[in-house]
Amino acid sequence: MHGWTDPGRRRGAWGVVAVVLLVGVHLVRGGTEEWRSGGPPQPLAAAAPGAARTAAVVAAPGPLPASPPVRVRVPAVRIDAPVARVGLDAEGWIEAPSPYDRNLAGWFGGAVTPGQSGTAVVVGHVDTPEGRGVFYDLGALARGRSVEIARTDGRTAVFTVYGIEVVPKDAFPADRVYGATGTPELRLITCGGRYAPDGGYEGNVVVSARLTAVR
């Protein structure tokens, strides 16, 4: 699992892959079978990014300057949560949000801030030791829905979802998920796919969205 420990030389996509894997590790250790029996909602295959990646391009605002996020809102699936910066732990791994705060998301500070040119990443637990996590309903999101990121500078960056999918953890498409597209983008990530008591979730739910408005 621990693939790299050199924060000074490796950033971007490789660093974010560590976020994905670490979130999975935490979730394997948490949760209870009583409420997980039905499982979190999973994206439809037809909602995955594809032709929609280019079709979703609209008249969008230009990139914003750097400003850390303070809150994430996804009204369509009732997500409204504070955002904490997550970085690297003592072993060189990227931290995940606390598994003991059910309504907390984490912004990976090694990538751009939401609204900047590039791909910003916000992660959250699907479950916690106490029950459902902040991103439990993320898999129910649909194309065309909005994700709002409130920033420290008082602006709110509004992103429109153009794809949502489950990707396997053992073959995570890092370049496609985290690579720059030439526009400000956002990825929301949590665990998903099939759950096995001895191995946890086999995949990650990945929401891809593009900046379409600033308030």
Rank of each mutant, 00 (worst) to 15 (best):
L88Y: 13
G92Y: 02
G92H: 04
W93L: 12
I94A: 06
P97Q: 13
S98I: 10
S98H: 12
S98Q: 09
N103G: 02
L104G: 13
A105P: 11
A105Y: 07
G106S: 13
F108W: 15
G109E: 15
G110N: 01
G110C: 02
G110R: 01
A111Q: 08
V112Q: 08
V112D: 02
G115F: 01
G115A: 07
V123H: 01
H125Q: 11
H125D: 11
V126Y: 02
D127H: 14
P129Q: 09
G131H: 06
R132L: 11
R132P: 09
V134Q: 10
Y136M: 02
D137K: 08
D137W: 12
L138Q: 10
L141W: 01
A142C: 09
A142Y: 01
R143E: 08
G144F: 09
R145D: 15
R145F: 00
S146P: 00
V147T: 05
V147S: 06
V147R: 04
I149C: 07
R151D: 07
T152A: 15
D153P: 11
D153E: 05
D153M: 10
A157R: 05
A157F: 04
V158W: 06
V158G: 10
F159P: 02
T160E: 15
T160V: 13
T160G: 14
V161F: 01
V161P: 01
Y162E: 08
Y162S: 03
Y162A: 01
I164R: 05
E165F: 00
P168C: 03
D170C: 05
A171P: 01
F172G: 03
P173F: 07
A174W: 04
D175N: 10
R176Y: 03
R176V: 00
R176C: 00
Y178P: 01
T181Y: 06
G182S: 11
P184K: 07
L186I: 12
R187P: 12
R187I: 10
I189T: 05
T190C: 13
T190F: 04
T190N: 08
C191P: 10
G192N: 12
G192R: 06
G192Y: 10
G192S: 12
G193K: 08
A196R: 15
A196G: 14
A196Y: 15
D198F: 11
G199H: 15
G199P: 06
G199V: 06
